[in-house]
């Protein structure tokens, strides 16, 4: 009996040792890109893949603020030409939207992310390598009335992914994400009406246009990425604003 047990142990214990699965750095980058926790900010709700499809075929019906990532490592410029360096382009997302620490991108995290982006652009491939047109109008003006019957559809494709359901926020990415349209109307309908606006509803709808076009780059709130004209047309934004109304 004892010899049988000893023999079994002798045979099984080597198999008991931990195994090591070696994966390329790009696999770690893929995991980082899908994990909002990667930025180490407790306020962050975004992963890279929240705003970017990996490949154009994966965009589906969504209207995403970020361009597909396939080919990004080969692109000559980013952010509508504001930078020509991939590191700077990624750092902008990492710090402004994901609330991450820039120096993280100089270490292991950045190394893995870069490896993953490189893997999406294998040698010889030109897919996605052309710079993506991204126009962010500096000057925002009222867009006029849109088609209210299309507002829900635009919402579903462009906004619901982060903000959840209209009116309740059900399914939104986190508690700090605004519930629309209620939060927006509550914040802006009672403001002193700036000159140049016919009425409060027009003003609030223009606030929405500005938020969509400039995202968090207004100097006062949020982590929302901006939508370029190419990502979300003026016509779509005009229809979307019909969800907003002041009493």
């Amino acid at each position: 009996m004892r010899s049988a047990v000893a023999l079994a142990l002798a045979l099984l214990l080597p198999a008991c040792a931990d195994t090591e699965l070696r994966l390329p750095a790009s696999a770690e980058g893929a995991a980082i890109a899908q994990n909002p926790g990667s930025s180490r900010s407790r306020y962050n709700v975004f992963a890279c893949t929240t705003c970017h499809a990996v490949r154009p075929s994966e965009v589906g019906a969504r209207l995403l603020p970020g361009a597909p990532l396939e080919g990004a490592a080969r692109r000559a410029s980013f952010w509508g030409g504001e930078t020509v360096h991939l590191h700077e382009a990624v750092e902008r997302c990492w710090t402004f939207f994901m609330r991450g620490t820039p120096t993280d991108l100089d270490g292991r995290t950045g190394e893995a992310l870069y490896a993953w982006l490189e893997s999406l652009s294998p040698d010889g491939s030109t897919a996605g390598a052309q710079p993506v047109a991204q126009t962010y109008p500096r000057v925002v003006r009222p867009l006029g009335d849109g088609d209210a019957t299309r507002a829900q559809a635009v919402w579903t494709r462009a906004c619901a992914n982060c903000h959840g359901a209209i009116g309740t926020g059900a399914g939104r990415l986190g508690p700090l994400i605004s519930i629309v349209p209620g939060d927006t109307q509550r914040e802006h309908c009672d403001e002193v009406l700036p000159s140049g606006y016919a009425d409060r509803t027009t003003y609030v709808r223009t606030v929405v246009v500005e938020k969509v076009r400039h995202g968090s780059f207004l100097g006062y709130a949020g982590s929302m990425p901006p939508f370029s004209v190419e990502a979300l047309s003026d016509a779509d934004v005009r229809d979307l604003t019909m969800l907003f109304r002041c009493p």
């Binding site: 198999a15 931990d18 195994t19 090591e20 699965l21 994966l23 991108l105 100089d106």
Partner: peptide, 29 residues
């Protein structure tokens, strides 16, 4: 008891540890 010992041993062993390769070149080109 020998079999219980063996079972407990096997239950905690054989974990797969993922190790990622480092890049050869400096990141970001």
């Amino acid at each position: 008891s020998p079999f219980l010992f063996l079972a407990s041993c096997l239950a905690g062993c054989g974990e797969e540890r993922v190790v990622y390769d480092r890049l050869d070149a400096s990141a970001w080109g």
